[in-house]
């Protein structure tokens, strides 16, 4: 019995050493410039189309059963002539020390080689623990198996599983595109170029507010943007070490506007 417990503890430790991801090839990171975000929600639409996220409808949204992997939070301040509106797109932050990973009783969520926090749908039993632990509220639960009507099932992305009832899901940083880029790079015997991988939200952003890249590569655009003075991470005090970096919005009068202030 003691040996058995030791074995479990050993496995538990492997996944939970802080900073263990640093030895991996890639550290996928997203930088979101809030100065450029105008809250058009093109990223939300693109994400839904790319990742087979069902449209649940008004009623289910009212029951707090929304199914969006990325959402735009709006903050409105002040009275009419002096209104300040702030938008902030929030998706899974792919935390380096993710609280959700410690929670899952069946190891359905874990950290992989690329510094991604991934969800294995086949393992998930739907205990909802990860969603409770997530400080960013980005994990979404399939309350029902959503059916697509006849012509709409044709637009499903074959590279992404169609999830069923009782499975937790969340943003994957479009892992299927990362995988495709890796495949291409391997065929041509090179490493992945900067900007070759673009998640659906980054690709669709009309103002170019989002940038995606490899943090381990010092020449990447993301690495340079992350040095900016405006950078901050969401709920940094929780020490979850998110992979998504936000650049503060600077207003006309010089004050910075983040949703945290």
């Amino acid at each position: 019995m003691g040996k058995f417990l030791d074995k479990i503890l050993e496995r538990f430790k492997i996944y939970r050493i802080p900073g263990y991801y640093e030895k991996y090839d890639h550290k996928w990171t997203m930088v979101i410039d809030l100065d450029r975000c105008n809250g058009c929600e093109a990223c939300v639409v693109a994400c839904n189309a790319e990742n087979n996220v069902p449209v649940v409808g008004k009623e289910e949204c009212g029951n707090k059963r929304t199914l969006n992997w990325i959402r735009i939070e709006r903050y409105v301040e002040g009275e009419y002539p002096n209104v300040k509106v702030k938008f902030i797109p929030i998706m899974c932050q792919h935390c380096g020390k993710a609280p959700c990973e410690t929670a899952c009783p069946v190891y359905a969520t874990y950290h992989n080689q690329d510094g991604l926090n991934v969800q294995v749908y086949n393992r998930c039993v739907g205990t909802f623990t990860c969603a409770t632990y997530c400080p960013y509220d980005v994990r979404r639960f399939n309350w029902f198996t959503y059916k697509r009507d006849e012509p709409l099932n044709q637009q499903l992305n074959p590279d992404v599983t169609v999830r069923e009832m009782g499975v937790m899901e969340k943003c994957t940083f479009c892992i299927q595109r990362i995988r495709a880029a890796k495949d291409r790079a391997k065929d041509e015997n090179r490493s992945i170029r900067d900007g070759e991988v673009q998640p659906a939200c980054v690709q669709s952003c009309p103002t170019g507010a989002m940038t995606f890249g490899d943090m381990n590569d010092p020449d990447s655009k993301v690495f340079k943007l992350a040095k900016s003075q405006r950078k901050y991470k969401l709920l940094e005090e929780l020490n979850a070490d998110p992979s998504v970096i936000y650049l503060k919005r600077v207003m006309k009068d010089g004050s910075s506007a983040t949703h945290e202030e």
Binding site: N112, V118, V120, Y121, N122, R123, T161
Partner: peptide
Amino acid sequence: KDCWTCHK
């Protein structure tokens, strides 16, 4: 051994 090597 990574799940997401084969699962999607």
